[in-house]
Write a protein that binds this DNA or RNA. Structure first.
Lengths: 205, 205
DNA sequence: TAGATTGTTAATCGATTAACAATC
DNA sequence: TAGATTGTTAATCGATTAACAATC
């Protein structure tokens, strides 16, 4: 059995990766846990500890080669490959996601978009033709797609999630402002701007 | 000095509130820490512990009155009032946010939207006229706005954040895929779909 | 009353930090 | 070599859970 890595550590790796990519864009070759920590507001010790769960990626005295470390983190996170992602819902958010070109550099490729509204089906969203969500389950299953983003109204989200799970999806990023219940083995991440705003008002006057 | 509440507790309160609102919509009057916990995948003990940081909101033997508890949580989070929020960036995401009607029930009101592109300035985004971002700092300061959402390209985000801080904004929800550095006392939340997706691929095969 | 559920304490569990030998 | 920084251990800190008296 492989060593059990805390989920909170997994959650920080994408942040590290994003910072490494930015440093790389700035033309930097090498960094240190201290520098990375200062940029991210995370302690240097924590960064070293997190990375040490997976191997030894640095050199004493000099730090980490940025390109090398980025590749290692990509490998750990399994984003050194391309994941097909389905979008469900072709409203404002679904279309914004379909047109977003930031996914490809990060390991993802939008592969289908679905909606239930007859007036949207057959229309365009980014470079995709919007498909009928009645065919969703079989198309996703046939394509072997494991990841999906939900951008449908709150009232529809649970039903969509259920169908996605039946189709074999095991990772869901939901923009619907409701809690989704899924079986063990299926991961869910939520994006709800109101929730994020409400996390901050407590500290305001 | 008021008791110091862990940020992780504050982070769960909006989740509780959202679940309470949903129960309320379902016509329910009363719930228990156990029921709430089952819906959210959180232990009942944790919910009781979290709430007990702020007061005694339940009744032994019966549980919590949903409407009452929701109001208490709103008060704790300070979303029993309306917060004006500025949007910076009128691309796909900014316009989706400007047109989103879910904010008003959750304590927020979009009040302005800005962009730097001449061809967008003066145009419409939802019910708003897009303003010139050169006037952003003074308009936000004049209106006393404390919250903003950033929906500009990654390359612009830090400069925008700096201006927002200068204008008096103290809570920023950023959709730009970069880490923002802000002074102490300013809170930042990030929404980056790639980061959320990358948090899940580790668990896939 | 009997049953249910809270609020809270103490115990457990897990995450973060400090410190430093190893070494580039 | 001297200085810097890693990887790792042990100590600290903080969060979660279990358990139960209080009480509705």
């Amino acid at each position: 059995m492989p060593k059990q890595i805390p989920d909170i550590v997994i959650g920080r790796l994408p942040i590290y990766l994003r910072a490494l990519l930015q440093m790389s864009l700035e033309g930097r070759q090498v960094t240190s846990s201290q520098e990375l920590g200062e940029r991210l507001g995370i302690s240097a010790a924590q960064i070293r500890k997190d990375l040490s769960q997976f191997g030894e990626f640095g050199k004493q005295g000099t730090g980490y080669n940025i390109e090398f470390l980025a590749n290692q983190v990509r490998e750990i996170l399994k984003v050194n490959r391309v994941w097909d992602v389905a979008i469900v819902g072709a409203g404002d958010i679904g279309r914004a996601l379909a047109g977003y070109n930031g996914f490809s550099q990060r390991g993802f490729r939008i592969s289908m978009i679905f909606d239930a509204k007859p007036e949207l089906i057959g229309g365009q969203a980014g470079e995709f033709t919007i498909k009928d969500s009645r065919t969703m389950k079989e198309e996703i299953a046939a394509a072997g797609i494991q990841m999906a983003m939900i951008a449908v109204p709150a009232t529809q989200a649970q039903a969509v999630a259920d169908q996605l799970v039946e189709a074999g999806v095991r990772a869901i990023l939901s923009y619907a402002p409701v809690n989704l219940n899924v079986p063990a083995g299926v991961r869910v991440q939520n994006i709800d701007p109101s929730i994020h705003l409400q996390r901050m008002t407590y500290y305001l006057e």
